[in-house]
Design a protein around this nucleic acid. Structure first.
Lengths: 292, 292
DNA sequence: CGATAGCCTTGCAATTTCGCATGTAAAAGC
DNA sequence: GCTTTTACATGCGAAATTGCAAGGCTATCG
């Protein structure tokens, strides 16, 4: 018996539709359907009445939904337990990060961790370049490429997605609709990591409004300066913007958390790194979920 | 978040060891370890203290175990709900089956279904040959091969395993130890389905004690007549016997549930077929679990 | 003090699962 | 009455998961 099928069942039961449950579960509707089919085979009874209008719960399905809902609550308590367990971290930590993460992820995340850990001081160092850990500019750094240098230990934090965004009022349905629109992006010769050369990847060239700071680019976009590539996780902070050509233009990048190899023996920093990494992962997932 | 990882966590938490949890979960210990590692990354905290002696729970792990245990109880209630929902089946159904299934699976399974469904009469027709559904010898049949005839609808029920068995006192470690032992099996020219020609598949020939009935073969084996191939799911009923050369000699076969295509429109028979199929699957899993 | 047994970790091949794309059917709108 | 939309089913290639096997570590026994 697959517990995960129950999670899928619960999602479908709540909206009574495969296609509406799919985005909530972040799965394809086809997969959702197959999981439900497997579950029904498993328990040997029909949980839904299938129709071209959707999946309606049977009486049995309703009763099961309530039980599974309780299970969800228990599991939720279980993970909350882990969240609250981060207490006891003390000292101070300085984190270097590219300004996208520094502006839209780290504030909330560090605030939360700080609230859970009264004895902890966190400093966020936003830099428009690669942080130099060797010079001890920071205790750890978030990067978009795993560094090749020795003496550093890297752990992948999470993938994140970027899309083209435009003002809410813009009507952009095809790439042709981009013709004549002003493009907001990085200052070409100040791109400090090739992973940031989004527009180059897309074959675009000629940036009309440029900045070395993501936050500035976002402010420009919000004030209607044009269209540009933007982190999905930053979009909830920019209600004036919407994603366009979502299926056509879609980028995925990754954050890595980098530390000195010598710090690996520090129980304190290692725990902090794990906590930070997990919290960042959750926050990215949460924010991207708000967009989709 | 993968609910199934919580199920794995619970199993490991209960025995505080990967290798002991693995057989309970019917997974490889390596997989169990990887799932735990993924869960710990997910929640961002250590749940176990790893050592070459096993996985000891951390304080956090203990608290989580309690919550997950409650979740398990809720999910258990959910599936029980489905079990109890089989009520309302009425009428009578005759099931044809090869005698292995008829003797060791159907009695308990049909008794359980009958208990849940007071208005239901179930007849078990044990036959040492393929049941002829076209002649309406039975409403449905369990077979070891999917029939090729048209007008029949087939659903796979479950795989099952067979191994060589011998009396508890026998000391058989290699194939050479079989030399000189009497072999119990089918009467060669009465094998009605090639899937039953186990010994032929294994290259053996010459059966010293033979019957067309699995149940009779089992009785012969229990009384020390020799060694023979036997269904794992029948082994719990034969305490005098044990499996030997388990890794060397292992067969897998499948049961199929066959019905008339015209019965497919019968809601009653379809529901019964689903209930029977799921219950058989569970019973096979339960019995095989007792052996392993 | 060395050998052995138990347990976990890592590399690799095979299976399973997944997502995308396409097909089909019912309902809503013109 | 026909078109458009919405939702579920199925085929196929890609990717993640799994089991097996070899390696390393620690404790126990002779």
């Amino acid at each position: 018996m697959q517990w995960d099928d129950m999670r899928v069942f619960l999602a479908v039961a709540r909206v009574e539709s495969l296609s509406r449950a799919a985005p909530v579960l972040r799965m394809d509707a086809a997969t959702v359907g197959r999981r439900i089919a497997r579950l029904e085979r498993e328990v040997g009874a029909a949980l839904f009445v299938k129709s071209p209008q959707g999946y309606a719960l049977t009486d049995l399905g309703v009763r099961m939904r309530d039980h599974v809902g309780e299970a969800e609550a228990s599991l939720s308590l279980a993970t909350d337990e882990a969240r609250g367990d981060q207490g006891g971290l003390i000292g101070h930590v300085r984190i270097g990060a590219p300004d996208g993460a520094a502006n839209y992820l780290l504030p909330q995340v560090c605030a939360q961790i700080g609230a859970d850990n009264p004895g902890l001081e966190i400093q966020i160092l936003a830099l428009p370049r690669v942080v130099n850990l060797s010079k001890r500019e920071a205790d750890m750094a978030i990067t978009v490429s795993p560094p090749q240098a020795e003496r550093l230990v890297v752990q992948k934090v999470s993938d994140y997605r970027l899309h083209l965004v435009a003002p809410l009022v813009a009507d952009i349905r095809t790439r042709a609709d981009l013709k004549g629109r002003r493009i907001v992006g990085y200052i070409p010769d100040m791109i400090f990591d090739k992973e940031l050369d989004y527009l180059g990847d897309l074959g675009a060239n000629g940036v009309q409004v440029a900045s070395n700071s993501v936050a500035v680019q976002v402010m420009a976009l919000r004030s209607g300066a044009g269209v540009g590539i933007m982190h999905d996780f930053a979009l909830p902070f920019a209600p004036e913007l919407k994603r366009v050509l979502v299926n056509d233009i879609s980028l995925t990048r990754s954050f890595y958390l980098v530390r000195h190899a010598s710090d690996r023996t520090s129980e304190r920093l290692t725990r902090f790194a794990d906590v930070l990494s997990a919290a960042l992962r959750r926050e990215i997932e949460r924010l991207e979920g708000l967009v989709a």
